[in-house]
Nucleic acid binder design. Structure first.
Lengths: 350, 350
DNA sequence: CTGAAAGCGCTTACAG
DNA sequence: CTGAAAGCGCTTACAG
């Protein structure tokens, strides 16, 4: 591997100028006389010179890249977000490093290392479970929180999860449902908690009962949705409609429910959260709350860029809105069953 | 932002030694006398010193990171692969940069820039549409192709797509199908071509007719699967079974077919490719060819590491095997319909 | 075992 | 408009 790297020296020699002039030609061409500039560019062509970013960055005191830190890279949820970030960053010639916080033994220590000098010029955090203390690195670069994160006051891009819950409950209540349940994400997850709280508020606001027995714990995964289906089926006084904290859980629920010959929206109305790609292709197509993930990535990157360039980020912080995508998994509640059946209590809700 | 960076100088002063000794204590501790070492470590603690990677890397002539270059980062297909790469790389203290080839105006030029000195120590290529000429950069770092790529001879990790097609056709033929169709990926995609060729070979090998009219062109997306459903429905002599080049297309097909009251496996048998997460949760759960994506990422990273460290990669190149995941979307073909109907010719196949 | 010194490849005040 | 020179923070032969 004899990579005989072409350096700025080679170009300078070839063009008969100093390295300073070569450098200037490449970074601030206007300041160089035209004939000189042309000679330099010719020499660059001839030698095939490519700037060595390592050296440039060391000199400039920046790395030219930022890190996106996610709790689980394998989660396809992040792919669109990363694509959004990459779009904004690459337009500015910044690199995008990705890392998984939950991979090693000590996530906090990993974060601290990524904040060390020379690792990156900034960082976007998607993992709300990291401890705020890990951010306490002297001279650390700017950090953007792209998750709800209650404990620390970081510049952030937030998704309006409360609004999502409100839209879901409003839609179901408008259809005539009063027994509206909720399938949650993991208890410790802040997103999950906000959606749960949003469901409670939306129910209460309408004089509906946000009953504890109508809350089914999940962890965002399809499997946990399938499990929720089994618990829902066994519940004595089960809701006629369910708002899921993720589409994946709704998918798992629908698949499992179907095995018990329960169909949406005939037997139960279902609203998801995220609008993952498959949602439109299910049977029935899933009504859901859409999160604009590409936008989240773009916004997070733009905010970080502003911070890196010395801005205060104020103009870039934002609450990303969500909206209801109406499909076919919701309908008015089924008519009350005759007395003596498991769902008899539904009569009271009509 | 007054980041007063702590440098190796500060530590040296604090410990009363030279910077060389500090450096050695940190990289090759054994070569330093114990008392000295301890003094240095104390000074590191006290000052909160963190090595500046930029400087270290410039000196060492490496960047400490590699690039994964994908045609479309938003495709969730890549998330597991990236997670697999990240796992291997971070264990070795390498960073993972990601970039999207199809974002800018000139993909080849982007590739060339990423191959420039100082951008990364190596690169994994997932985009088979890039032109080989773009790799022709003097002194470029090692590149691993993690896609089938016929034109260039790069160290590579390949997925056994032909085997996947064979498994799918074998399974359907064993069930009694003889009219087995194929829904392809995009024509120009090498993966798609290999799967199509694999289907043809597998059919021919069994004396079955790989009829052109049984090939439906798609582009891997759910939408294209739905379109294939419409074309399949309209086909005069339609196949009783379909092998899809992607699960996503199978999902789109099933959703659309259901609207025409066509169900798998009652009316048509369906085999996908990939084993995406939702496959297990569909109704019916989808029989498919599984690609171990995490493994692909791990292998690609391991191969690249070997190349970067001066190996020839030979021991790390590999063909990743696929397997058939049997679920409920396949069954023996429906009995031939009575004469006079569209599917009457099926009788000949019984 | 330790230190003085060179140097990785670039950029940028400072002179002229 | 251009060049000589310093220096970004580190590592590593080379002496001792």
């Amino acid at each position: 591997m004899d990579r005989k790297q072409v350096t700025i020296q080679d170009v300078a020699r070839e063009a008969g100028v100093s390295t300073a002039t070569v450098s200037r030609t490449l970074s601030k061409p206007t300041v160089v006389a035209k004939p000189t500039r042309q000679a330099v560019l010719r020499a660059v062509q001839k030698t095939g010179y490519q700037v060595n970013h390592l050296a440039r960055n060391l000199r400039r005191g920046r790395t030219g890249s930022v890190i996106a830190l996610a709790p689980n890279l394998a989660n396809p949820f992040f792919s669109q977000i990363l694509a959004g970030m990459s779009e904004v960053l690459s337009a500015r010639n910044y690199g995008l490093l990705i890392a998984d916080t939950q991979m090693g033994p000590d996530p906090d220590e990993r974060l601290r290392r990524y904040l060390a000098a020379g690792a990156a010029d900034g960082l976007v955090l998607f993992d709300g479970s990291l401890s705020p203390a890990a951010l306490d690195v002297p001279g650390r670069p700017p950090v953007v929180a792209a998750c709800e994160w209650l404990k620390v006051d970081l510049p952030s891009i937030r998704v309006d999860n409360a609004m999502g819950a409100e839209l879901a409950v409003a839609h179901l209540a408008d259809l005539g449902h009063s027994r509206i349940g909720h399938v949650t994400g993991p208890r410790r997850n802040v997103l999950a908690r906000t959606r749960l709280a949003g469901w409670r508020d939306a129910m209460t606001r309408r004089g509906l009962d946000p009953r504890e027995g109508w809350v089914f714990e999940g962890d965002f995964s399809m499997d946990s949705g399938a499990m929720a289906a089994r618990r829902w089926l066994a519940a004595p006084d089960r809701p006629t409609a369910l708002f899921f904290a993720s589409d994946e859980m709704a998918v798992g629920f629908l698949g499992e429910a179907r095995r018990a010959d329960i169909r949406a929206p005939r037997d139960v109305s279902v609203v998801g959260f995220d609008n993952i790609e498959v949602a439109a292709h299910l049977d029935p197509p899933l009504t859901t709350i859409r999160q604009p993930r590409t936008l989240i990535g773009q916004r997070a990157a733009a905010l970080l860029m502003d911070l890196i360039e010395g801005g205060d980020g104020a103009a870039f912080e934002s609450m990303v809105e969500v909206d209801l995508i109406l499909r076919d998994s919701t309908a008015p509640p089924p008519p009350p069953a005759p007395a003596g059946q498991a769902s008899s209590k539904a009569a009271g809700a009509a």
